[in-house]
Every structure is written in C-alpha cells, then in structure tokens.
Design a binder for these strands. Sequence first.
DNA 1: AAAGAGATGGTCT
DNA 2: GACCATCTCTTTT
Length: 170
Amino acid sequence: MAPELLGKLLIVGAGDRVVSGRIVETEAYTSDDPASHSFRGETPRNRTMFGRPGRLYVYRSYGIHWCANVVTGSAGDGQAVLLRALSIVAGLAIARDRRGDRTFRDLANGPGKLCQALAIDGTHDGTDVTTGGSSIMIVDDGVPFPPDPIVGPRVGLSKAVDVPWRFRSR
DNA sequence: AAAGAGATGGTCT
DNA sequence: GACCATCTCTTTT
C-alpha cells in the first residue's frame, strides 16, 4: 500500500544521467474506487494495473502530463499507488534542466512534474521497478521517514499540495 | 500567498 | 463528444 512506498528512493536513468528522488507523497487507488482507472475493468490502457505487482503503470494525464503508479495488488486486482511528489536527491542539475529554473520544491511536487523531472514517459509502462538493472527502480536506503502522513480515506484532493517533509527551498 | 481559468489529447460513452 | 488521478500562467489579496 501507499505507506510502503513513502520514503523510498525512485531512481531513473543510467550512468551520469541518473536522477533520483525520495517519495514524499503517494495515493492508493483500488478497483473499488470510482476515481480509479481500474474501476470500470480492464482496458488496453490500464492493463498494466491488472498485471503483476512491482511494475510501473504510466499513463498520460490531461493530454499533457505523464503520471506514474506502482502496481501494488496481486495480478487481477487492479490496485496501484500514484506517486504524487518527490524530493530530489541526485541529479538536481538535470532535473532543473528539464523543469526549468524553479525552486527546489517546485521540481517534483506533483505527479506530472515528477515524471518530467525524472523523464518518465509511456515507454516505461510495465517496467519492473523491484529489480535492479533496469533504467528505473525503487529502493529502500533505510532512511527513516516522518510518521503519520496525511492521507484522506476518500479520493479527491481538496487541499493544496503541501508535502509533509521539511524542504529548504531557499 | 492564494485563487481561478485555459491548455491539450487519449480514452471511454 | 465529454471526461479527466494536472500544470502553468495571470490576477488578486
């Protein structure tokens, strides 16, 4: 579920073009949820959601942005966790290059921004993030994460994105 | 610092 | 043809 992913590192790229960030905000989506892509059953687009867990489900949002989810349910469940915000750890210059000159926090404090900063797109759909060796993976580096993240039981973000992590943005 | 509206295109009805 | 799991820019406190 969502708390499992909080605090872990998302690493994308290879060699000297690696950008990584700590996951600071997530949201879970299940097939029970009317807002979930999996709610109305499997379609060509969301087939990854119904596949094996540990893979990345990437889709295009509003025709503009990419959004990345990690499949968390068993095959057939249609359960995934949306990566909502990151704190950039490595490759800061590269991320800023892709996102434009913005404040540190503004680099990846949203699903679409996160994908742009780490260069995640549709070609990553279905990628296994639990095994090393691929150009994108999620690892646990053992850094403790502040407890009690604010996650509403209902879907629909009514609040502004305020990341539960202390940033030093200037 | 906060709030509102436009952009933009794939997917589903 | 409508609906968005959003972002950015512009305007207003």
